[in-house]
Amino acid sequence: MAENRGKPHAIMISVPYQGHINPFVNLALKIASKGFSITFVHFEFVHHRLSKAHHLHCNKTQVDIFSEARESGLDIRYTTISDGFPLEFDRDANYEEFWGRVLHEFPSRVDEFVRKTIKSDPYLLHFLVADTVFSWPATIAEKYNLVNVSLWTEPALVFTLAYHVDLLIENGHFPCKVNNIHEEVNYVPGVKSISTRDLTGMSVSFGSFVHTSRQVIEEIAYGLLLSEVHFIWVVREGILSSSDTKIMPDGYEDEVKDKGLIIPWSNQIRVLSNPAVGGFLTHNGWNSTIESLWCGVPMICYPFLFDQPTNRKLVVNDWKCGISLCDGTSVDRKEVAEKIKSFMSGAPSKRFRQEANKVKTILHHALEVDGSSEKNFNQFIKDLKDKIQSGTSN
C-alpha cells in the first residue's frame, strides 16, 4: 500500500435520498478526475433498492457508474454501511423512528467505519465528505484529525433560511404554519423577501406526504387527460420507496394510450434534452429543477415538502420560467387541465421558454473552462489539497 503514500482519499457519505445521492456521485467523479482516491459509502438499504430497480428497469446504479469510472482509470471504491435496521424495515412508513436512529445511533457506525478505513491504508491522506444535514461529521473529523468537507445539496436560499432558522422561530414563522395565511418574511439577512408559503416545508411527516400524494395523483392524472396534451409520465414505484403499491388509477393507462406514455424509469436528462418537450411537471426537487434549467425547459411546479416550496419560488417568482400547478391547497382536475392548456399555448409557452433559456445560458457558461463554476471548483481543489497536506481538520 506504500504506493498510495500521500494520495488524498475522500470518504463520502450522503443522506440516503436520491436528491442528495446524485450530487454526491457527481462530486465523487469530479474529485476523482483530479487525481484523488474515493470511497463512496452507500446506506445498505439504498444499495438494495437501487439494485432491485436495476433488475426491474435496467437503469444504471451507482455500482455501474463507478465501475465504468474505474475502467476509465479513476480511483473509486464502492461500499455500504448499515443504518441498524433490517433491510425489510419500512423506513418511509416509520420515518421518525428511522431518522431518530440515524441521528443518534448511526454516528457510532460511521465512527467505526472511518477508524477501520484509516487503519486499512495509513499511507493515504484521508478526509471526510459528508452531507451538511448530518450533525456528526465535525465530531468524527476532529477525532481522527481529518479535513471535513460539508456538501450542501440544495440552493443557497434554502441554506440561508436554515442558517437563520432562529430568526424564523423568533418571529413565529417556523415551523411552517398549516393554514393558508401568507405573510412576507423580510428580516432574514441576504434574502430580500419571501412568503411564508415558500418556506421550506419541514412540520409534514413523510408518511402523510405519501398518503396525500396518492390522493392528488388521480386529480393530476385526469387533469392531464382533460388537457389533451401528449405526455410522458415516469412513475418510480418501489425504486426509492419501500412501498410497491400501485399508485396510478385503475384503467388509466388504457384511457391515455393515445396521448400518454407511462413508464417506470427514464434518463431524465435525455428526455428533457429532446426539443419536442414543451414543459416539465415537477415536484421541484433540486435535482429535477436544475436538470430542467440545464435543458432550458420551463416548469409546471407542484412541490410537496422539504426544500421544494422554496425551489418553486425561485422558478416562478425569481427566474419566471414556470408556473404553479395549483393556486390553493387542494388539487382539482379541471384547474390542472386549464393550467396545463394555458402553459402549453403559444404566447405563454414561448415566454417561459425564453426565460428558461436565459438561465440555461448562465449555467452552461459557468461550466466552461474559464467559467465561474470551473474556476471555483479548481480553487476548492487547491484549497483542499493545501489543507490536507497541512494536516488541519475541519
Rank of each mutant, 00 (worst) to 15 (best):
P8Y: 05
V15R: 03
V41I: 12
H42Q: 15
H47F: 15
R49G: 04
S51Q: 11
D64Q: 03
D64P: 01
R77P: 10
Y78E: 12
P86T: 09
P86S: 07
F89G: 00
R91C: 07
D92H: 01
A93H: 10
S120M: 13
A130C: 14
N145P: 01
L151I: 01
T153D: 10
V165A: 05
E170Y: 15
N180H: 13
H182Y: 13
N186P: 05
N186C: 07
I194K: 10
S208V: 08
G223S: 05
I247D: 11
M248I: 15
M248N: 07
D254W: 09
D258T: 14
N267A: 12
Q268K: 03
A276C: 08
A276M: 08
F280A: 06
L281F: 11
G285F: 03
W286L: 14
S292P: 01
S292R: 02
L293K: 10
G296N: 07
M299V: 14
I300A: 03
C301Y: 08
P303V: 12
K313P: 08
C326S: 14
R333S: 03
F352R: 07
E355F: 02
D370Q: 02
G371R: 00
K375R: 06
N378C: 03
L384G: 02
Q389E: 11
T392W: 09
S393G: 10
